[in-house]
Design a protein around this nucleic acid. Structure first.
Lengths: 335, 335
DNA sequence: TTGTATGCGTTATCAT
DNA sequence: ATGATAACGCATACAA
């Protein structure tokens, strides 16, 4: 802190603080001669604007918050980049908080963001978020956009991807290739995204006159090893299964491992579709066919919506659902 | 903004604002009876502390800035998580800015962070950062820690990894496995980290009596596809090369692709070591042997040092160099 | 132990 | 076109 204030500059330029302030904000009409003088004084003194004071006086803030549960996940890294870009475009600053999936820390962060007067926030809530969390958010009445995880609370704007449709597209792809015995592998029991994907999966099966087997729908951790583990049991007991939709790409990678262990070659003896289009998907052999959910775009759209809310847009609650895209590679057969 | 202030609470509780303030900060001695009353009023009114006002009054701030050039890069995601954790431990908030490698935007961000009065910052400066950037930072005299990219400006604290040693360890690993024709793939021409890694690479070759071929040292973008591209030319023209140290894991992943395209199986016909130990490294097949630079730890250490500076530690400039660790997986052969 | 009064650096209202 | 001054919400020195 250099400590140079408006008053110092004013004295130096031989004007009032009001004048300096107006020069800084380009408000009011000031003769170009005094403007010159002020500008010169500003420069000579190495003045640095005190946003904190301005925020207090204006009862506003130039900061928005982003609450994530795992910044380490490349998907959220992408999303953050998209949002960050939008935030910059609006000359705001981004406050980042990482709940690491703890409801307690999440609440702490949001409280902190509120104390810091953020003008809005983007949230990907932890899985076990209590209703009280959303309530406290509403009470303060600060613009907040939920992202990625569906069904947080219907009163909030939401930006995410169409899990249902994504799973439908993935499933139909397998169906059209002639597969009839298809499993769904991965995701945790209490995941809303997973519920939607399973919905897309089963609905499409039914559309083709196929009754979904609930024993062919497996949960797993979000890791390759656990994907491999759960697939092992399923595929040894049900060798007639010829394809699977996986909840995540990483799970699909695990399934690939298991297939090879069982002497079956993915892409030839078995068809596999993943979800997320992570980098590795294009890398493995055979390259993984997957549903892409455009993480960066989610961030960008969330920012766009947030700023429109900040600027007073009071249309009814919005749900922006980005269309997923099937990225066809090699894991369902080469042609 | 609910708009409830200290004064409102004070009135309600029948005390002065000073008392309320003291209750909030746990300062001064206040009878437990009035404390009760204040706490009750606080709660009833749904008071929310105004950090902005406090910051102004205290001539301080509870925010630290983090300037990155690519939040999308998993390495920086990890680092951010480490720093974020440390920031939380100190009850501060983290302002994130993404320069996308533009010196101009970077300067804009830092100016903005300064106007917002951050109490400190962690910086991974853009590659083409002009000296004026560092000068403006020094002028304001705000604690700043440089990370990852070496040699920014000797007057700043630095936290990074030992690139030289890391590359030596990686190279020696290949050498001990019997490889004698080893390439170095990746990194951009003007990268300081890369220069250090090449130093480790060549010095170790020389130690084993091998003369480094400059044509076997390639630059590439930090992407899988470019890694694949540059490897293609090298490996078709020099089929006798049996191993490579890659500047980054992502580049190594690209090289894997190329190898397969050329009918060579990584881990069997060719040995590969990466750098960074990103999540994908453990996921691909064969899993990538790599030099871990403990991204999270860099973030944590940077935070630790930053807060010690903020608290007044005025020891001479520090350079914290974290030891790299070779993570042996499968890409140099299974055993 | 608690209250009074002042100032942090800015902006906006009202004069001039 | 510009100046004086009163907030913004809080913390603290000092008084009581």
């Amino acid at each position: 802190m250099t400590g140079v204030t408006l008053a110092d500059v004013a004295k130096r330029a031989g004007v009032s603080t009001a004048t300096v302030s107006m020069v800084l904000c380009n408000k009011g009409r000031i003769s170009s001669s005094t403007r010159e003088r002020v500008l010169k004084a500003l420069d000579e003194l190495g003045y640095v604007y005190n946003q904190t004071a301005a925020n207090l006086r204006n009862r506003s803030s130039n900061q928005v918050g982003l609450l994530l549960h795992d910044i380490t996940n490349p998907f959220y890294g992408e999303m953050t980049a998209g949002l960050s870009h939008e935030v910059e475009r609006h000359d705001r600053l981004l406050l980042l908080a990482n709940s690491e999936e703890s409801a307690e820390r999440q609440q702490k962060f949001v409280d902190s963001l509120m104390r810091n007067n953020v003008c809005g926030m983007v949230l990907c809530a932890a899985r076990e978020t209590p209703q009280s969390f959303f309530d406290s958010l509403k009470r303060r009445n600060i613009p907040a956009i939920m992202v990625v995880r569906p069904l947080s609370d219907p009163d909030f704007d939401f930006v995410g991807t169409d899990n249902f449709l994504g799973a439908q597209v993935a499933t139909e792809h397998l169906l059209k290739l002639g597969h009839r015995r298809i499993a769904f592998i991965g995701g945790s029991q209490n995941s809303g995204s997973r519920a939607q994907r399973i919905g897309g999966f089963t609905s499409k099966l039914l559309e083709y006159g196929i009754t979904p087997h609930s024993e062919w729908i497996l949960t797993s951790q979000a890791s390759q090893s656990d994907g491999a583990r759960v697939a092992q049991a399923l595929l040894t007991q049900n060798p007639l299964i010829t394809a699977a939709v996986c909840y995540q790409d990483i799970v699909a990678l695990g399934v690939m491992q298991t297939l090879r262990k069982l002497g079956r070659e993915p892409g030839r003896d078995f068809a596999l579709v993943g979800f997320d289009d992570i980098t590795e998907a294009g890398l493995v052999q055979p390259a993984l066919t997957t549903v892409s959910v455009a993480a960066k775009e989610i961030g960008r759209k969330a920012g766009e919506l947030l700023f429109s809310r900040i600027q007073g847009n009071d249309e009814p609650v919005k749900r922006i659902i980005l269309p997923p895209a099937l990225v066809v590679r090699e894991s369902c057969g080469f042609r």
